[in-house]
Nucleic acid binder design. Structure first.
Length: 243
DNA sequence: GCGACAG
DNA sequence: ATCTTGTCGC
C-alpha cells in the first residue's frame, strides 16, 4: 500500500506510544491486509450482525446485534431494504487501553468488538462495522482487521473517509462512485439516502466490493445500515446508563 | 512547511 | 468519539 503519504504526525502521537511501537503495529496491519480475501459471499446472508463501541473516559461499551433477514432479494438488481428481526444482543464493558490515532482505530476498538461478537450464540453470515475495510492506508481498516481475526464476511461502512479520493455520487439512493488510491479502487462512496452524506463502503473480508455495496443498500432504511445503526443506539444507551 | 486524519 | 438543546430543512 502507498503509505508514505499518510504518516502519523509526530505531534499527534499521544503519550505512551512510541514511534517504534506504531511501526510494529503498522507491520501487523500489513500482515493482516495480506490475509484479506476478496471473494464472493459463499451463501446468501440470512443472519447479519452489526457491532459498535461507545466510550466514556476510559470505559468502552461494545454491542453486537444479530438480526435475521425475513426475506431475500428478488434478484441481483434488488436493492430494497430487507425486513429484519433482531435475534440477539450482546453487550460488553471493557477498559480502553489505546488512544485514538487515525489509521490505528482497530487497536483501540477491536478488542471490545471481538469480545461482543464472539459472545453471539452463532456467527453471522455477514458482519457490518462502522469504519473502513480495505479503504485504509495499509489496506487494513477496522472491518478487515476484525473480519480476518474472526474469519467472517465483513463490510466496512464508515460515515466519513480516511483514505482515497472520490467524486460526490448523484443525489439518489443507490448512487455510488469509486474510492480510489494508489491507482486502484479501494472502496466506494455510496448514497444510502437522498440529501445525506454518502457512506464510505469497502471490503472488509470474504466479500466483493459489488456485494458490499449491494448488501449495504439492502440493510439500509436510513443513512446507516440497520445492524450498525442499532448497535450504535444500544451502545450509546448503555453508556448513558453509566451515570 | 502546510494540510489531512475512520472513531 | 465526546462536551450538548433546540432548531432549520428536506
Amino acid at each position: 500500500m502507498g503509505d508514505r503519504r499518510h504518516r502519523w504526525h509526530r505531534g499527534t502521537v499521544p503519550e505512551g506510544i512510541s514511534a517504534e511501537e506504531l511501526e510494529r503495529l503498522a507491520d501487523l496491519q500489513r500482515e493482516l491486509a495480506a490475509k484479506v480475501i476478496e471473494c464472493p459471499l459463499t451463501r446468501p446472508p440470512r443472519f447479519v450482525a452489526g457491532a459498535d463501541v461507545h466510550l466514556r473516559n476510559d470505559i468502552a461499551i461494545a454491542v453486537a446485534v444479530l438480526q435475521e433477514t425475513l426475506d431475500q432479494p428478488m434478484d441481483d438488481q434488488d436493492v430494497r431494504p430487507l425486513p429484519l428481526r433482531e435475534v440477539e444482543r450482546v453487550t460488553v464493558r471493557t477498559q480502553i487501553a489505546f488512544p485514538y490515532i487515525p489509521g490505528f482505530l482497530s487497536f483501540r476498538e477491536a478488542p471490545a468488538l471481538l469480545e461482543a461478537i464472539r459472545g453471539l450464540s452463532r456467527p453471522p453470515d455477514l458482519l457490518v462495522l462502522d469504519g473502513q475495510g480495505r479503504a485504509h492506508p495499509r489496506g487494513c481498516g477496522l472491518a478487515s482487521h476484525v473480519g480476518v481475526l474472526l474469519d467472517l464476511p465483513t463490510i466496512g461502512a464508515a460515515k466519513s473517509r480516511l483514505y482515497g479520493r472520490y467524486q460526490e455520487p448523484p443525489n439518489e439512493r443507490g448512487a455510488w462512485s469509486p474510492l480510489i488510491a494508489d491507482g486502484t479502487v479501494i472502496g466506494a462512496t455510496l448514497r444510502t439516502r437522498p440529501n445525506t452524506k454518502p457512506l464510505i463502503v469497502s471490503v472488509g473480508h470474504r466479500i466483493t466490493l459489488a456485494e458490499a455495496i449491494l448488501w449495504t443498500l439492502r440493510l439500509s432504511r436510513y443513512r446507516l445500515p440497520e445492524p450498525t445503526r442499532w448497535a450504535h443506539r444500544y451502545a450509546k444507551e448503555a453508556v448513558a446508563a453509566l451515570r
